[in-house]
Design a protein around this nucleic acid. Structure first.
Length: 589
RNA sequence: GCACCCGUAGUUCAAUGGAUAGAAUGUCAGAUUCCGGUUCUGAUGAUAGGGGUUCGAAUCCCUUCGGGUGCACCA
């Protein structure tokens, strides 16, 4: 719609002798109760037109319609100038761009962006919260790629620390040599099981000590198990061979388990970073900061930064004994990642409980004069709630990722079979289909909500074949493909329809034309929710079009061809949009 | 206590500072169903409360209330 912007600038110059820029113009889609497709908000122009909003609108409308042949008519309602664009414009736009399979693919912008997501701990399996993280990270990377970035997906694995030692200790102490093979358990679940066992045994010891008269606090510190775990961590840090080899073996199990889950989720990574490699990083940066006077040393030798002038607190960046804290590592890792990839932007997909941490982290890097720091972005997301209530690991109400995936696929199977429409499908095809539907339901439901908002995940609602759900969109796609194949349509077939458009046809063309714009907006805000909602609108509008405009029974061959091509483009856009969400669309279902 | 985030129909979600706040689902009517599990129309129903800025506020500012998270020399 650039030509409207351009001409509006001309109109304002000619009529009111005022220079404005495109960003001063508020262009929006015309609400459907009014005539037209594009609306210019003219309230802001009354300042220099010195006329009423209606008069201003009429004058600009007059100017535009005489100077732009694409504008067939206009009307003014208060400060809103509604422009009707001619059908021939929409048709040529459709034939020239939207109707092409490549429509919406943006050219490279020469920038590189890193998306760090998933970031699991190796002491327990993935849960529902991780699923949101993984889906967001993957989808944002896809969207950025579609909007022209070169992307690097990375995973920073938290593979060390006291929590791993707890699993390791419990396994040696209570495990009798159980392995994934011998137990039939997925590696991450096996290790998670021992983490739970540790906790149980540790609690027993605490109770015992309390019974002997110790306070809760002391008991927690003095329990033999925790002391042993700490001892194990020290050995690990010292490079003790036995501990290291146990650690490697158990982490190996976990990685095998994660691999399976990642595959089912359809996410991937170009590079893994491990905290065992990075936990000592960041000390150079501390020295750098001390030299630059960004940090200061306290009497006990600990190093701090004073952020009170920025409305934050004083923050410790290095302990008195010279060891790192969390933020020290993150400073070092940020530098490491930049050195590795020299990316222009870097997105951290991490839950909103770490908002403060990232605020501090980015601010410190900026104060250190890192020029790349302004490209850092924390994609913060809210927790996932369930109808049954909050997930609490202590109360055992966490939803395991593998269990949930299995349940979604099973529900998809049941629903689909009830509807009895999978005759003619082979067993393999059915398996694929159920997986696509189950995962589509899960992914769509989690992605359609703005990341920063807390969300309530209802598995049953998500897998509905009607309503604002993934399966509804998948179904719409499948039906389009089915219509096309029944009509013998070949992809990429052209149309030379020149007639009038029906309302639903025009609406659909207008909506489809907004696809690239939607990707751009979604990329700049790092929000797959916009794509999700857009694709839903497309599917819904297609259904309306489908019922209003006979396709197979169309009386006119050219019209039929046009409607087929329009259907094919819709299917194309749905497929592309869903791909950005990491959701597969079946050809038939 | 301090800081940050959130508060929209019964429910789940929308709404670059713009028109009469949209969908979905639920409930109640009616019509329709080229290929389906439809679709359409109508009814129902919401910006937590109070101030302010603005031509114009769900959106920005202040405040009260409610929910969440963070305020470790844990990661």
């Amino acid at each position: 719609m650039d030509f409207i912007l351009r001409e509006t600038i001309n109109a304002v110059r000619a009529l009111y002798q005022t220079e404005i820029t495109a960003s001063d113009i508020n262009l929006q889609e015309t609400r459907k109760e009014f005539e037209g497709q594009v609306t210019v908000v003219t309230f802001p122009f009354t300042r220099f037109s010195k006329k009423s909003p209606e008069q201003t609108g009429n004058e600009i409308g007059e100017y535009l319609s005489t100077n732009l042949q694409e504008i067939s008519s206009f009307n003014v309602v208060k400060g809103f100038l509604n422009l009707s664009i001619s059908d021939s414009f929409w048709l040529s736009m459709f034939n020239g761009q939207i109707g092409k399979p490549m429509f919406g693919d943006l050219s490279p912008n020469g920038k590189k962006v890193m998306v760090e997501y998933s970031s699991p701990n190796t002491n327990k399996p993935l849960h529902l919260g991780h699923i949101r993280n993984n889906l967001l990270g993957y989808s944002v990377a896809e969207i950025l790629a579609a909007s022209g970035y070169e992307t690097v997906k990375v995973n920073l694995v938290n593979d060390r620390g006291i929590h791993i030692c707890k699993s390791m200790l419990a396994w040696t102490r209570f495990g009798s040599g159980e392995t994934p093979e011998s137990s039939g358990l997925k590696g991450d679940h096996l290790v998670g099981k021992y983490y739970v066992i540790f906790d149980k045994e540790y609690k027993k010891e605490i109770d015992q000590l309390k019974a002997e008269g110790q306070t809760e606090e002391d008991a927690k510190k003095n329990a033999p198990l925790i002391k042993e775990a700490q001892q194990m961590l020290r050995k690990w840090e010292a490079g003790d061979e036995e501990v290291i080899s146990l650690w490697k073996m158990m982490n190996g199990w976990v990685y095998d388990g994660f691999d399976v889950t990642y595959k089912k989720l359809g996410v991937d990574f170009q590079k893994f970073y491990y905290e065992s490699d990075t936990y000592l990083l960041g000390k150079d940066i501390i020295n750098e900061g001390l030299e630059k006077g960004v940090f200061f040393r306290k009497e006990d030798g600990s190093v701090w930064i004073d952020l009170t002038a920025d409305g934050l607190d004083e923050k410790l960046v290095l302990r008195a004994d010279g060891t790192s804290v969390y933020i020290t590592q993150d400073l070092g890792t940020a530098q490491l990642k930049y050195n590795d990839f020299k990316m222009d932007e870097s997105i951290y997909v991490v839950g909103n409980e770490q908002d403060y941490h990232f605020k501090v982290l980015f601010l410190i890097l900026e104060k250190l004069g890192k020029k790349w720091a302004k490209g850092l972005y924390h994609l913060s997301y809210g927790m996932v709630d369930l109808p049954s209530g909050k997930m609490k690991s202590r109360e055992g109400t966490v939803v395991d990722a593998d269990d949930l995936i299995a349940e979604m696929v099973e529900t998809a199977r049941q629903r689909t079979e009830e509807l009895g429409k999978v005759e003619g499908f082979s067993e393999d095809e059915k398996t694929d289909l159920y997986h696509m539907i189950g995962m589509g339901a899960l992914k769509y439901f989690l992605l359609k909500v703005e990341p920063k908002k807390r969300l309530l995940f209802d598995p049953n609602e998500s897998i509905d074949f009607q309503g604002h759900t993934g399966p509804f969109i998948q179904y719409t796609h499948a039906r389009i493909r089915s219509v096309l194949s029944k009509a013998g349509y070949q992809d990429g077939q052209a149309t030379d329809h020149t007639g009038e458009l029906s309302d639903s046809e025009r609406e659909l063309v207008v909506l489809l034309s907004k696809y690239p714009e939607t990707i751009r907006a979604s990329a700049s805000e790092h929000s797959p929710a916009q794509i999700a909602n857009y694709i839903y609108e497309v599917a819904k509008l297609y259904n309306k079009f489908y019922h209003e405009s006979p396709i197979i029974k169309a009386e006119d061959e050219q019209l039929k061809q046009f409607r087929l091509t329009l259907s094919a483009s819709t299917a194309n856009i749905i497929k592309k949009g869903m791909k950005l969400l990491g959701i597969a669309v079946p050809e038939r279902m």
